[in-house]
Simulated scan of single mutants.
Amino acid sequence: MTFRMPAEWAPHERTWMAWPGPNPTFTNDEELTAARTAWASVARAVRRFEPVTVVVGPGQLDSARALLGDAINLVERELDDAWMRDIGPTFVSDGTELAAVNWVFNGWGAQDWARWEHDSKIACHVADLAGVRVVNSPLVNEGGAIHVDGEGTVLLTDTVQLGPGRNPEWSRAEVEAEIHAKLGTTKAIWLPHGLTGDYGMYGTQGHVDIVAAFARPGTVVVHSQQDPAHPDYERSRMYVDILSRQTDAKGRQLEVVEIPAPTVLKDEEGDWVDYSYINHYLCNGGVVLCGFDDPNDEIAAGIFRRLFPERIVTLVDARAIFAGGGGIHCITQQQPKV
């Protein structure tokens, strides 16, 4: 059988995360403490639904245990940063066996602040801990840069897979061929870029998992900025237009569900925020949803409850995670159940 990446809503064996340590993303003790508190909140929320293993840097086990509690598994490995979606493996299955795709990781396009000596090896460490074989890919890619429906369709963005910092010599056709070969997909839907704020200091340069995500085969949730003052107002309308005119790998016309963005437009430094409810995480029986202490938190939660009536929706404050450059989906990585 062909290996394929199961959809995120398929049953999980466990969730993998990585623990924030001192690094360029968290520039002082206050930021690091806030990040660890947020990561721990996400880990505990996920643990209500499935096992969680957190990879922790050397010498940090005691401090991690104090915040995570005894119900979460900890393993010690060298780390540079804490974004398991991007540094961890992408698990694929043929129905009887699990394997781990090891993309090339280069610090989100070799950004000058990033370090990846240790993070580039985490996918193999996690695969070893999970007891599955590694499938190496020559493509520079991250888990947050792909989203699949489990039935042959994958979402990608031009500025990531085709960006100059990642795969400058690759053509669109070559990228698609490698993605399809590793994920078992047959159709790629490309968006031109990500959200405006994702191109700042700690941005990923356009990850799709903050813009759009499959909620079920044939249905995609899309970030919808409601305020014309924000540059994502036009961008989100472009995404809705593009996706509304697409069919998936099975030939279904996509149903687009718009998720209103939080009302806040800028951060304390005056930069446009990329706060997004799209960057949620589906776990066994649950939806862990980014919260921002915002009036739209409950609106978004209500939409997700309608989309996933059989799941419990949990809001977790994600502002400290977004301050580091990502959201709840960015710090979690599912291991599918075979």
Score class of each variant (00 low, 15 high):
residue 124 C to L: 14
residue 87 I to G: 05
residue 133 R to S: 15
residue 74 L to G: 07
residue 70 D to K: 13
residue 129 L to T: 09
residue 119 D to I: 13
residue 159 T to I: 06
residue 148 V to Q: 09
residue 153 T to R: 04
residue 180 H to A: 03
residue 150 G to F: 05
residue 136 N to G: 14
residue 119 D to N: 13
residue 86 D to L: 08
residue 73 N to E: 15
residue 116 W to E: 07
residue 177 A to V: 01
residue 92 V to G: 04
residue 136 N to Q: 15
residue 154 V to A: 09
residue 172 R to T: 05
residue 97 E to W: 11
residue 78 E to Y: 11
residue 100 A to W: 05
residue 170 W to Y: 13
residue 177 A to G: 01
residue 84 M to G: 04
residue 134 V to K: 02
residue 130 A to M: 10
residue 95 G to S: 06
residue 76 E to N: 03
residue 170 W to M: 10
residue 162 L to H: 05
residue 119 D to C: 08
residue 107 G to M: 08
residue 113 W to L: 07
residue 96 T to C: 12
residue 120 S to K: 14
residue 68 L to T: 02
residue 180 H to D: 00
residue 134 V to I: 11
residue 168 P to R: 02
residue 132 V to W: 03
residue 93 S to K: 02
residue 92 V to W: 13
residue 154 V to E: 12
residue 73 N to Q: 14
residue 153 T to F: 08
residue 145 A to V: 12
residue 71 A to C: 13
residue 148 V to W: 08
residue 90 T to R: 11
residue 82 A to E: 07
residue 84 M to W: 03
residue 167 N to A: 00
residue 145 A to C: 15
residue 92 V to L: 09
residue 164 P to W: 12
residue 95 G to H: 11
residue 83 W to A: 06
residue 156 L to F: 06
residue 180 H to W: 07
residue 141 N to G: 02
residue 138 P to K: 05
residue 81 D to L: 15
residue 86 D to Q: 05
residue 154 V to T: 10
residue 171 S to W: 06
residue 84 M to T: 07
residue 174 E to I: 01
residue 119 D to W: 15
residue 146 I to F: 12
residue 106 N to I: 13
residue 177 A to Q: 05
residue 100 A to S: 11
residue 72 I to S: 07
residue 100 A to G: 11
residue 145 A to K: 12
residue 169 E to V: 08
residue 80 D to F: 14
residue 160 V to E: 03
residue 141 N to T: 06
residue 130 A to S: 04
residue 128 D to F: 13
residue 162 L to Y: 06
residue 148 V to G: 02
residue 69 G to D: 05
residue 124 C to S: 15
residue 80 D to V: 06
residue 71 A to P: 15
residue 85 R to T: 01
residue 143 G to P: 12
residue 130 A to V: 07
residue 101 V to T: 03
residue 88 G to C: 10
residue 112 D to C: 12
residue 126 V to G: 04
residue 99 A to T: 00
residue 176 E to C: 01
residue 89 P to F: 00
residue 87 I to H: 02
residue 175 V to G: 06
residue 94 D to W: 02
residue 145 A to H: 14
residue 178 E to Y: 00
residue 116 W to G: 01
residue 171 S to V: 06
residue 117 E to W: 11
residue 129 L to N: 02
residue 102 N to A: 15
residue 95 G to R: 05
residue 149 D to G: 09
residue 82 A to W: 11
residue 163 G to T: 07
residue 147 H to K: 12
residue 117 E to V: 09
residue 173 A to M: 08
residue 80 D to M: 08
residue 167 N to D: 10
residue 141 N to R: 12
residue 123 A to Q: 08
residue 148 V to S: 09
residue 170 W to H: 07
residue 85 R to M: 00
